[in-house]
Design a binder for these strands. Structure first.
Length: 471
RNA sequence: GGCCCGUUCGUCUAUCGGUUAGGACACCAGGUUUUCAACCUGGUAAGAGGGGUUCGACUCCCCUACGGGCUGCCA
């Protein structure tokens, strides 16, 4: 019998807590969720887990949205504030109470600490066992209470994970977690489940630091009779030394990568290859990644950050980008780094000249450095090496060159003919002429091709720069 | 401490019982070249250790070591 039901829509989400910048690991988690949903015509939602009022800030939320936007990860609808759903969370907690799958716990923090201390001293498990779990309602004091999950004491909970496989937890390892605090606010453990259910999330793709939590969260799904999402717990990203990625490894915030001048497409490409592979595919577009991305291709071991590889991938993306798109992203990069913006002349030269530099740059700062000749105005300031290249003989050569250039066809072939014969006239190879030309045109001895530079800045500017240098 | 996850070239990874263990980055050598790059060709380099299972294990099981995560009225 054929299944006539349409395939249910895939819904994924990224749920960061707004306590700081968007971590690069979080960026990859978001990327995986985005890739999975977008590649299957599904939805990618964004939820801000701001139930911790002490640590959540609007600035952090803004930074996270900026980071995702820069990475090019667009989400469906508005970002949902978890805090805004608190009444719904409380409602569910009380529903669980009514169903008997949760109970009121009057233990205070001090009680719990005393319990744990005693447990430690006696070498017992420190999992808290509330005395109120089976207390008669008539014995309940008039006092604030937390609502705890009535978790099974025996048996096991199995988390069927698309990445980790079937992971089994003994229920004796799981205690009665608090779902609603004594002040009436929900805990994360409750809030995620309720929100994921309410938002229709079908696939929970997140860091494997949540793998243990999944077992507890399943109990909430079960208590409410809700269908479980597909779990996919992905390994965390580690620093180059294999330790958990932290500030001492350098850049961990996504926006730092933007500021370092990595193109977003390259960043997506690199990040997608951290913990996921599609055969031998290394360099690919986001469209290809969407088509190929699948949970089954995700590895189980943590990956380390490798800046060399990141740069290599980014270099390929810069080279592959359309000039207009590249210029656009370059200007956005300049904007975030506080650059005043391009003049019309600079923009014009760049849009015509990116071809000469984009295949040789791995990052935007590198691209800018190589495009130096196009961005400067006369008089061209020569660095020490360039000054050395502009000795008396060289200046003489440049001087004899300018009349010919004034009347030349401004094409590469024509320029090549002129410059080659000029060098030959001095009994030199072209290389000997190229050096002073670079110095005069760019003020540097390391530049793109001299022909390209001349073509890009044009005849008048070329002649003027040569005359400036020949003086 | 308890529970959970992991371990293939330096790094990211392919392999899903039978391969000379493949690719990419990095590195080394050569080529090309107007500088620097880029590019082209070639090369070095890996199954943590120990037990099993099997005709045959990188692939399956167990132990150890190492790394990581969780163990909150944080998320």
């Amino acid at each position: 019998m054929a299944d006539t039901h349409p395939a249910p829509q895939i819904v994924t989400r990224f749920a960061p807590s707004p306590t700081g910048y968007l971590h690069i690991g979080g960026g990859r988690t978001a990327l995986f969720n985005w890739l999975y949903a977008r590649g299957r015509g599904g939805k990618f939602l964004l939820r801000i887990e701001d139930t911790d009022r002490e640590r959540s800030t609007p600035e952090a939320t803004a930074a996270i949205l900026r980071g995702l936007t820069w990475l090019g990860l667009d989400w469906d609808g508005d970002a949902v504030s978890q805090f805004d759903q608190r009444h719904r969370h409380a409602e569910v907690a009380h529903e669980m109470l009514a169903r008997g799958s949760a109970y009121k716990c009057y233990s205070t923090q001090a009680d719990i600490e005393a319990f744990r201390e005693a447990a430690r001293a006696e070498g017992r498990s420190t999992l808290f066992r509330s005395p109120w779990r089976d207390a008669d309602a008539t014995s309940h004091p008039v006092a604030p209470f937390a609502i705890r999950m009535r978790a099974p004491l025996t048996g096991e909970t199995i988390v069927n994970d698309a990445v980790q496989g079937a992971v089994r937890f003994g229920n004796d390892q799981l205690d009665d977690m608090v779902v609603l605090r004594s002040d009436g606010t929900p805990t994360y453990m409750l809030a995620v489940v309720v929100d994921d259910h309410d938002m229709g999330v079908t696939h929970v793709i997140r860091g494997d630091d949540h793998l243990n939590n999944a077992a507890r969260q399943q109990m909430v799904y079960d208590a409410m009779g809700w269908p479980l999402p597909v779990w996919a717990h992905i390994p965390l990203i580690h620093g180059p030394d294999g330790k958990k990625l932290s500030k001492r490894h350098g850049a961990v915030g996504i926006e730092e990568y933007q500021a370092m001048g990595y193109p977003a497409a390259g960043m997506r490409n690199y990040l997608s290859r951290l913990g996921w592979a599609h055969g031998d595919a290394e360099f690919f577009t986001s469209e290809q990644a969407m088509e190929w991305f699948d949970l089954s291709g995700i590895g189980r071991s943590p990956a380390r950050l490798d800046f060399k590889k990141l740069e290599s991938v980014c270099g390929q993306h810069i080279a592959a980008m359309e000039n207009a798109a590249l210029l656009h992203e370059l200007e956005a990069y300049w904007a975030v780094t506080g650059h005043p913006g391009l003049t019309d002349v600079q923009r014009d030269r760049l849009s015509r000249g990116l071809y000469s530099v984009k295949e040789r740059a791995k990052t935007f700062p590198e691209l800018i450095e190589k495009a130096h000749f196009a961005l400067i105005d006369r008089p061209v300031a020569a660095d020490a090496a360039a000054q050395a290249a502009l000795d008396a003989t060289s200046r003489g050569m440049l001087k004899s060159l300018t009349p010919q250039l004034r009347n030349a066809h401004w094409t590469k072939d024509a320029l090549e003919a002129i410059l080659s014969s000029a060098a030959a006239a001095h009994g030199l190879g072209f290389g000997n002429l190229a050096s002073p030309l670079r110095a005069a045109l760019a003020g540097r001895t390391v530049t793109p091709s001299v022909y390209d530079m001349m073509l890009i800045i044009g005849r008048d500017e070329t002649v003027a720069r040569l005359e400036d240098a020949a003086v």
